[in-house]
Write a protein that binds this DNA or RNA. Structure first.
Lengths: 151, 151
DNA sequence: AAGGACAATTAGCAAGACTAACTACATCTG
DNA sequence: CAGATGTAGTTAGTCTTGCTAATTGTCCTT
């Protein structure tokens, strides 16, 4: 039965991949509106999140982390700077680099927004059985691995 | 201890929600480039997918299914129609409704794109243990429930 | 037959994504 | 040491996707 089993494995894996993809789309769509309550769009909020957690970071690295091109990140950072959420500083050793860091206000707004966003899902997750919560926790780890390593 | 235990549950649920949110973003980012190989943007591909699987569908229902407003869907459908992937037909009984259906070419392009997209994740998923695959399968179901019911 | 209700489209706007081209700076090399 | 090359970031211009408001066409109710 090795031939059939292998083909079956691949088919099953494809089905899981397809359902996971669809589920990811729907979960993100669900929380999108909550994010807007912070006054920041999803791309800005996501960029701010990286800036807060990755500490001071150059624009190029930030763009790569967010999966966008440098010009796109330039505008996102400009908007965040205008809102007083981040600051830019030229590298003293190599003036080509700009280091972006979050202000206290940026940190605080991110924390608030994060709470709001996750609250929607968290309420439902808290109502699940302990087993289902464990499944989701483990799945989150697996999905990060897939995202990192899939080639 | 009910108060403290409840607080702990919520914190744990929030952490899971946050990690799940992040994982969903990263998985989608990972497959985005594969989707582009079809020549269709993500919104168009997603709309086409609904049209293929939901059969003939009115524009309004399609817009609701995709979580966008009718004018946005009008333009997406126009683009798909220009590419010969869908057709529009006025309802014979009530001329206010437009029924959208996929062409053979639309179906075939979707199938190809789906295979490409899913192949990236499926290869990695197939390499997981049976237990981890089961976790992902169950998680996909749970995530769809969260997306539908979270309020 | 006129009025309101409803589906879809059109028009116009803002945000975000891209490429191409440009500036400023650093480094390497002849 | 000076010019060539390369690199980080920005600017300019375009396209797509979202939205709301307003319009068109159709149906139904009074």
């Amino acid at each position: 039965m090795p031939r059939q089993r292998k083909a079956g494995d691949i088919r099953r894996a494809e089905q899981i991949a397809d359902r996971l993809h669809s589920a990811a789309i729907h979960v993100l769509r669900r929380v999108r509106h909550e994010d807007e309550a912070t006054g920041l769009s999803a791309p800005r909020l996501s960029a701010l999140s990286v800036i807060v957690f990755a500490g001071p970071i150059t624009l190029g690295r930030l763009a790569a982390a967010e999966g966008v091109r440098p010009p796109t990140m330039t505008r996102l950072v400009q908007a965040l700077e205008t809102d007083g959420l981040v600051t830019r500083a030229t590298d003293p050793g190599d003036a080509r680099f700009t280091h972006i860091r979050a202000t206290a206000r940026g940190r605080s707004l991110l924390a608030t927004g994060r709470r709001r966003r996750v609250a929607v899902l968290a309420r439902e997750i808290a109502a699940l059985s302990a087993g289902d919560r464990a499944v989701l926790a483990r799945a989150a780890t697996l999905m990060e691995q897939l995202a990192d390593t899939a080639g």
